[in-house]
Design a protein around this nucleic acid. Structure first.
Length: 293
RNA sequence: GGCGACGUAGCCAAGUGGUAAGGCAGAGGUCUGCAAAACCUCCAUCCCGAGUUCGAUUCUCGGCGUCGCCU
């Protein structure tokens, strides 16, 4: 089963409760929770949750050491789900990152072309125009966003590894296990209220200190985890670019934008059972599961 | 009260006598190995009034407001 929804809506608790009551385990599909060391603004589940229920997909690597992408995460998530199911238990996938959820539930191919760090470095330093020209040269039919450097870089990587057409590398093989998809939703003002509270709590728990400690430990400032909501703002505050007063406001603004994007993305998926996140979605979720059996 | 500066979108901010850069925020989109990322689209008639002018946001005068200095 898959639980999706925008940030700040209480997915962590809902997924945990579901897993606990059903004797299942949680697989987190979240590009920031995949990192160790940073806990506060990545919204890692609290220790009580982790001791009560098995968790997968979180704290996969220390950001001092490296980064994780969708593919890396899938190599953990897919076997974890197989394993959980093999033991006759329920896997509760909690997301999170839109692409990661879809890559799992739709079974994206991901092209079988791992990025080569050196080549990528060269490509990243190349202008959009040249990248676009390179893609057109390699595959005149390529359907990519020709204004987006990241998409172009990836297209070049795939095409240089396999040749055209690009579309041949973007198939889908949906997983065999049945996935009941549950979406949590709430009106934006309500989500915003929760985000304001969560941002405040994160600051009280020492978000800025955690960010400083990560920098001191050697996490690069351009590491993906520090581009996450909360850390990006804390970094700006540490640099003196924003004031202490602006900090929580910026956090809420970033979160709001992200929540809207998530809702837009998740709502496009046809087979989602949407449930209100307030006051407590768990009973409705359990009921839905019973009727689905 | 006097002197000076300023008054451009929610905020910051460029600019020109011929019908207003950019950034942030906001709204709407895209999305198959960086996805909490990246990218795309939209979003003002320039404090008010009078004057000069073919034409003023840009020049002049008056008003209002803000800031600084002085008494």
């Amino acid at each position: 089963m898959v639980v999706v929804g925008p940030t700040g809506i209480g997915k962590t608790r809902a997924a945990f409760e579901l897993a606990r009551r059903m004797g299942g385990e949680v697989v987190v599909a979240d590009s920031r929770q995949a990192y160790a060391r940073l806990h506060i603004a990545t919204n890692h589940p609290p220790d009580e949750y982790r001791t009560a229920v098995g968790y997968h997909g979180i704290e996969l690597v220390d950001p001092v050491v490296g980064a994780v992408n969708v593919h890396d995460w899938l190599t953990i998530a897919l076997p974890a789900i197989e394993d959980i199911r093999g033991r006759g238990r329920t896997a509760v996938v909690e997301g999170g990152s839109m692409l990661w959820v879809d890559a799992l539930t739709e079974g994206f191919d991901l092209a079988g072309a791992p990025p080569d760090p050196e080549r990528r470095q060269e490509l990243v330093a190349t202008s959009v125009e040249l990248l676009a020209a390179r893609v057109r040269e390699l595959d005149p039919q390529a359907a990519v966003d020709f204004a987006n450097p990241r998409r172009l870089v990836r297209a070049v990587e795939i095409l240089e590894a396999h040749g055209p057409p690009l579309s041949a590398r973007r198939g889908q093989r949906p997983p065999r296990w049945p996935a009941l998809r549950i979406g949590l939703e709430a009106p934006m003002p309500e989500i915003e209220r929760r985000l304001r509270q969560r941002s405040r709590e994160q600051l009280e728990r020492g978000l800025v200190e955690e960010t400083r400690a990560a920098l001191d430990a050697g996490v690069r400032r351009d590491h993906p985890v520090l581009s996450g909501i909360g850390y990006a703002e804390a970094l700006a505050y540490i640099d003196g670019a924003i004031t202490e007063e602006e900090l929580p406001q910026r956090m809420v603004a970033s979160n709001r934008r992200y929540a809207r994007r998530q809702l837009g993305w998740f709502r496009r998926h046809p087979q989602t059972n949407w449930l209100p996140a307030e006051p407590d979605p768990v009973p409705a979720m359990l009921k839905l599961l019973e009727s689905a059996d």
